[in-house]
């Protein structure tokens, strides 16, 4: 008697869950939702940036409005407080002539025990066309995109530590405007990589655009496991990490990092990882200084640098509107196609 089971052909094991793009792209490769940068290709990224470029030109004119999304209803569904991101999304929607509804959930339904899906269904029932979602949990935008009615687009405005795709796109837009070609650039992302959705999206975006070198600079307690597998060079020393870089992206340090034993003090962090005018001299002379905001002056960045000639921090905010207009118009286009 043999020990083998009766041999029969059986179906192959199913593939692991859907890749990010099965959810966010249509079959012909257009943006249906904007959930994550990961998995987008260079052509699509470039198309988004080119579209944003045309809106940027318009935004500099006296009449800043186009009727592209006239009659469409866009809901800003924010489960986490935000001023900058929400207002630029709102402005972007209004410049595309859409109607905008701002819903801040952190204080209303969530407290009453209403589930995320219930909230979604209720607003969906008002015949809306697009959700712009910010949520403190990673994967929230994916969850909503998976359960939303067909025809409604979901834009991720930040989910937990996972992704903040439009922030990364506006950063790429800013870099491209100043530097052009990415392939020769060295970019350093400095600070709390572990908790940063912005850093994750930036790393994917920079790699898709074939950036020469992407560095992350942080103490080991603020680096996620196996971070090098995202395609970055890891530095624990800021002076070394800044050497000859063309772009420095500083990340915000949250106060609660001290409470959870990631760091001893803001003081020591600033001594070791704060961007000062002295340290900036280690970078390339035409280096850009960026920050997704809001910056903690004297914690991660010196005021003289934040307001200095290398800083493009306010430009990032301005371009945020154009990039969000581009993404909004493209996802609505994909639905109408």
């Amino acid at each position: 008697m043999t020990d083998t089971l009766i041999a029969r052909p059986h179906a192959r094991l199913p593939l692991p869950g859907p890749l990010p793009n099965r959810l966010q792209l249509t079959e012909d490769g257009q943006l249906r939702h904007m959930l994550t940068i990961e998995g987008l290709n260079r052509e699509l990224m470039t198309e988004i940036l080119d579209t944003a470029e045309s809106f940027a030109n318009m935004n500099e004119k006296a009449v800043k409005k186009v009727p592209l999304l006239r009659g469409k209803t866009i809901v800003n569904l924010f489960f986490e407080a935000s001023t900058r991101t929400r207002t630029t999304f709102e402005l972007a929607a209004k410049r595309l002539s859409a109607d905008v509804l701002n819903v801040n959930i952190s204080t209303s339904s969530a407290v009453k025990g209403e589930s995320l899906l219930d909230t979604l269904r209720n607003i969906e029932a008002m015949n809306v066309d697009m959700f712009v979602v910010r949520h403190e949990e990673s994967g929230a935008a994916h969850f909503i995109a998976r359960h939303v009615m067909p025809g409604i687009s979901v834009l991720n405005a930040g989910d937990g530590r996972h992704a903040h795709p439009t922030q990364a796109l506006l950063d790429m837009f800013t870099i491209r405007r100043h530097k052009g070609d990415f392939t020769k650039l060295k970019v350093a992302i400095v600070g709390d990589i572990l908790h940063s959705r912005v850093a994750r999206s930036q790393i994917h975006a920079l790699n898709i655009l074939q950036t020469g070198e992407v560095r992350v600079v942080a103490p080991c307690s603020l680096l996620p496991a196996d971070v090098d597998q995202l395609g970055v060079q890891v530095y624990n020393d800021l002076d070394e990490g800044l050497k000859d870089v063309d772009v420095i992206i500083m990340l915000r340090l949250q106060r609660e990092r001290m409470e959870h034993a990631h760091l001893p003090s803001e003081h020591e962090y600033y001594q070791l990882f704060g961007l000062t005018a002295r340290r900036l001299q280690l970078a390339h002379p035409t280096c850009l200084v960026m920050h997704p905001g809001p910056a903690n002056r004297g914690v991660e960045i010196e005021s003289a640098v934040a307001d200095g000639p290398h800083s493009v921090i306010l430009e990032q905010v301005t371009y945020g509107i154009s990039v969000r207009m581009a993404v909004m118009s493209m996802v609505m286009g994909a639905h109408q196609a």
Binding site: G160, H162, A163, P224, A225, D226, Q229
Partner: peptide, 9 residues
């Protein structure tokens, strides 16, 4: 590990 890092979980 690498997947939790990627997903931000």
């Amino acid at each position: 590990g690498a997947v939790s890092t990627r997903l931000g979980l």
